[in-house]
Lab assay of single mutants.
Amino acid sequence: EALLLQRRRVTVRKADAGGLGISIKGGRENKMPILISKIFKGLAADQTEALFVGDAILSVNGEDLSSATHDEAVQVLKKTGKEVVLEVKYMKD
């Protein structure tokens, strides 16, 4: 459990079709971090076996998301290339 509370760096390699394969919720306007709300089976994020629903995305390719709005986070995630480095931390409810 202590492991979950540490920052983790996960590299996601996207397939030619399909994006990261995650849905996010939260954002500055909700006074919440950007959280992974869904991981789609078989897509890139799922294949890492290292990302979990409830993980907060702290940064994407080094771009800090700690004070991002939901829309800003969506845009940052959309413009990523084939390889995406996510810094995440599991957030307890």
Results as ranks from 00 to 15, higher is better:
residue 1 E to H: 05
residue 1 E to F: 06
residue 1 E to G: 10
residue 1 E to Y: 06
residue 1 E to M: 09
residue 1 E to Q: 12
residue 2 A to Y: 15
residue 2 A to Q: 09
residue 2 A to W: 08
residue 2 A to L: 12
residue 3 L to V: 12
residue 3 L to P: 09
residue 3 L to I: 11
residue 3 L to F: 13
residue 4 L to G: 14
residue 4 L to K: 13
residue 4 L to C: 11
residue 7 R to S: 10
residue 7 R to Y: 08
residue 7 R to D: 06
residue 7 R to K: 15
residue 7 R to F: 07
residue 8 R to H: 01
residue 9 R to P: 04
residue 9 R to D: 03
residue 9 R to G: 04
residue 10 V to L: 05
residue 10 V to S: 04
residue 10 V to P: 03
residue 10 V to R: 03
residue 10 V to T: 01
residue 11 T to R: 08
residue 11 T to Q: 06
residue 11 T to D: 05
residue 11 T to E: 09
residue 11 T to C: 15
residue 11 T to A: 10
residue 11 T to G: 04
residue 12 V to S: 00
residue 13 R to A: 08
residue 13 R to D: 10
residue 14 K to G: 13
residue 14 K to N: 13
residue 14 K to I: 12
residue 14 K to M: 05
residue 14 K to C: 12
residue 15 A to Y: 14
residue 15 A to R: 11
residue 15 A to M: 12
residue 15 A to I: 12
residue 16 D to M: 10
residue 16 D to R: 11
residue 16 D to H: 13
residue 16 D to A: 13
residue 16 D to W: 09
residue 17 A to K: 14
residue 17 A to F: 12
residue 17 A to E: 13
residue 17 A to L: 14
residue 17 A to I: 14
residue 17 A to S: 14
residue 17 A to C: 10
residue 18 G to I: 10
residue 18 G to A: 12
residue 18 G to K: 09
residue 19 G to V: 08
residue 20 L to Y: 04
residue 20 L to K: 00
residue 21 G to W: 05
residue 21 G to P: 06
residue 21 G to D: 01
residue 21 G to I: 02
residue 22 I to E: 02
residue 22 I to W: 03
residue 22 I to G: 04
residue 22 I to Q: 01
residue 23 S to R: 13
residue 23 S to G: 14
residue 23 S to F: 10
residue 24 I to P: 01
residue 24 I to C: 05
residue 24 I to G: 01
residue 25 K to D: 12
residue 25 K to E: 15
residue 25 K to Q: 15
residue 25 K to R: 10
residue 25 K to S: 15
residue 26 G to K: 02
residue 26 G to E: 03
residue 26 G to D: 01
residue 27 G to A: 04
residue 27 G to L: 02
residue 29 E to D: 10
residue 32 M to R: 07
residue 32 M to I: 05
residue 34 I to K: 00
residue 34 I to T: 03
residue 34 I to L: 06
residue 34 I to F: 00
residue 34 I to V: 08
residue 34 I to P: 05
residue 34 I to G: 02
residue 35 L to S: 07
residue 36 I to M: 00
residue 36 I to L: 02
residue 36 I to D: 04
residue 36 I to A: 02
residue 36 I to W: 02
residue 36 I to S: 01
residue 36 I to E: 02
residue 37 S to D: 12
residue 37 S to F: 06
residue 37 S to G: 08
residue 37 S to H: 11
residue 37 S to K: 11
residue 38 K to Q: 12
residue 38 K to P: 01
residue 39 I to A: 02
residue 39 I to F: 01
residue 39 I to Y: 02
residue 39 I to N: 04
residue 40 F to V: 12
residue 40 F to S: 15
residue 42 G to D: 06
residue 43 L to W: 10
residue 45 A to H: 05
residue 45 A to D: 07
residue 45 A to K: 05
residue 46 D to Y: 12
residue 46 D to M: 05
residue 46 D to K: 04
residue 47 Q to L: 14
residue 47 Q to P: 06
residue 48 T to R: 05
residue 48 T to V: 05
residue 48 T to H: 06
residue 49 E to A: 15
residue 49 E to R: 13
residue 49 E to T: 11
residue 49 E to M: 09
residue 49 E to G: 12
residue 49 E to D: 15
residue 50 A to I: 04
residue 50 A to R: 11
residue 50 A to G: 13
residue 51 L to M: 06
residue 51 L to G: 03
residue 51 L to K: 00
residue 52 F to V: 09
residue 52 F to T: 08
residue 52 F to M: 08
residue 52 F to R: 12
residue 53 V to W: 00
residue 53 V to M: 05
residue 53 V to T: 07
residue 54 G to Y: 03
residue 54 G to N: 11
residue 54 G to C: 03
residue 55 D to V: 01
residue 55 D to Y: 02
residue 55 D to R: 01
residue 55 D to N: 01
residue 55 D to Q: 02
residue 56 A to Y: 04
residue 56 A to F: 00
residue 56 A to H: 06
residue 56 A to I: 09
residue 57 I to A: 01
residue 57 I to P: 03
residue 57 I to R: 02
residue 57 I to K: 01
residue 57 I to Y: 02
residue 57 I to T: 02
residue 58 L to N: 00
residue 58 L to K: 03
residue 59 S to I: 04
residue 59 S to D: 05
residue 59 S to R: 10
residue 59 S to L: 05
residue 60 V to P: 01
residue 60 V to N: 03
residue 60 V to K: 01
residue 60 V to A: 09
residue 61 N to Q: 04
residue 61 N to D: 13
residue 61 N to W: 03
residue 62 G to L: 03
residue 62 G to Q: 06
residue 62 G to I: 00
residue 63 E to A: 11
residue 63 E to Y: 11
residue 63 E to V: 14
residue 63 E to N: 13
residue 65 L to M: 11
residue 65 L to E: 01
residue 65 L to H: 03
residue 65 L to Y: 00
residue 65 L to W: 03
residue 66 S to A: 10
residue 67 S to M: 15
residue 67 S to V: 11
residue 67 S to Y: 13
residue 67 S to R: 11
residue 67 S to I: 08
residue 68 A to G: 05
residue 68 A to T: 07
residue 68 A to Q: 06
residue 68 A to V: 13
residue 68 A to R: 06
residue 68 A to S: 11
residue 68 A to I: 06
residue 69 T to L: 06
residue 69 T to V: 03
residue 70 H to T: 11
residue 70 H to N: 12
residue 70 H to W: 11
residue 70 H to G: 07
residue 70 H to I: 14
residue 70 H to V: 12
residue 70 H to Y: 14
residue 71 D to Y: 13
residue 71 D to E: 15
residue 71 D to N: 13
residue 71 D to G: 10
residue 72 E to D: 08
residue 72 E to L: 06
residue 72 E to Y: 12
residue 74 V to D: 08
residue 74 V to A: 10
residue 76 V to I: 15
residue 81 G to S: 11
residue 81 G to C: 11
residue 85 V to A: 09
residue 86 L to S: 09
residue 87 E to I: 10
residue 87 E to D: 11
residue 87 E to C: 07
residue 87 E to P: 00
residue 88 V to F: 01
residue 88 V to W: 02
residue 88 V to D: 02
residue 88 V to C: 06
residue 88 V to H: 00
residue 89 K to G: 09
residue 89 K to R: 10
residue 89 K to P: 02
residue 89 K to L: 11
residue 89 K to M: 14
residue 89 K to C: 11
residue 90 Y to A: 13
residue 90 Y to M: 13
residue 90 Y to S: 13
residue 91 M to R: 06
residue 91 M to K: 06
residue 91 M to A: 10
residue 91 M to I: 08
residue 92 K to Q: 15
residue 92 K to H: 12
residue 92 K to R: 12
residue 93 D to M: 10
residue 93 D to E: 15
residue 93 D to Q: 12
